[in-house]
Simulated scan of single mutants.
Amino acid sequence: MIDLFVIKVGGNVLDNAPLLQQFLQNIATIPGKKILIHGGGKIATRIGDQLGIVSNYINGRRITDAATIDLVTMVYGGLVNKQLVAQLQALGCNAIGMTGADANIIPARKRPVKEIDYGFVGDITTKDLHVQPLQAMLDAGLTPVFAPLTHDGKGQMLNTNADTIAASLAIALSAFYKVRLIYCFEKKGVLRDASDDEAVIHLINRTIYQDLLENKILTDGILPKLENAFSAIESGVTEVLIGHADDVLRNTTREVAGTLIC
């Protein structure tokens, strides 16, 4: 029996109003304890363009300079987070908006400069998380909704990958609950053929994963999710599931859709 669902929703769902509305209705319907983590990179890029803040990427990762950390703090922690909270409240789900700085839940370290200076990007060490305030919120019937932001403990906000935040919270909370970590995006799961939305691989373990890598079957975009998934499983999380946002309610039952990581 799963005690807690940690659910991450990607930016492509946030950009699609009908898909997002259905997703939030499903989230509101899930019984028991749940935590939602969201992205919002495309929205930040769009608003940044309007403000004259150019988005720079290296190897698909956003470079977070001084102007950009102000932008993403405003967009992720403000606009996107509070819109999601307000919509969940309208659906009868008592949500509370959070960043990693709130209640000092997710302290992080600014990523060291090596070959690339990523700027104000935060790296998390799971053992540093403080999840007791989350337990109190969950026990009070609240649904925490996390923006992809952490802090360095010295007053500086940091941009942190939402998939990583989801995995880190799931790992830290697995000491107290049986946790299912669910990654929701616009695909039905991990696909054997990226051009065929029905080619879902329903079960992946380490052996199958290595075989998929060696045969170059997986696309680059899914690799970080799988690495986070295996890290979570190997650190105490009961189950990890990757699937379509439309299937989130089904994926809180035993009759799962998508890809189960074990």
Score class of each variant (00 low, 15 high):
I2S: 04
F5G: 02
K8Q: 02
K8A: 05
V13P: 00
V13E: 00
D15V: 06
N16K: 08
N16G: 05
Q21K: 12
N26S: 14
A28W: 05
I37Y: 01
I37S: 00
K42T: 13
A44G: 09
I47A: 05
D49T: 12
G52N: 12
V54T: 14
N56K: 15
N56C: 05
N56H: 15
N56Q: 13
R61I: 10
D65N: 15
A67L: 14
T73N: 13
M74S: 14
M74V: 11
V75N: 11
Y76V: 09
L79S: 07
K82P: 02
Q83R: 15
L84P: 06
L84R: 06
V85S: 05
Q87R: 15
L88I: 12
C93S: 14
C93W: 07
N94V: 13
G97H: 10
M98P: 01
M98V: 09
D102Y: 04
N104R: 12
I106Q: 01
A108Y: 03
K110Y: 01
R111W: 05
P112Q: 14
K114C: 07
I116K: 09
F120V: 04
G122S: 09
G122L: 06
D123G: 07
Q132V: 12
Q135L: 13
Q135S: 07
A136E: 08
L142Y: 14
T143D: 02
F146L: 05
G153N: 03
G153D: 03
Q156M: 03
Q156H: 08
D163A: 04
I165A: 02
I165Y: 02
S168H: 11
S168E: 06
A172L: 01
K178S: 10
V179L: 10
K187F: 08
G189V: 08
G189C: 06
G189T: 04
A194G: 00
S195A: 11
A199N: 04
A199H: 01
A199S: 15
H202C: 08
L203Q: 15
N205G: 10
R206N: 06
Q210E: 13
E214C: 12
N215Y: 13
I217T: 14
I217L: 12
D220Y: 06
P224F: 15
K225F: 00
S231E: 13
I233S: 08
I233Y: 07
T238C: 11
L241I: 12
R250G: 01
T253A: 07
R254A: 11
G258W: 00
L260I: 14
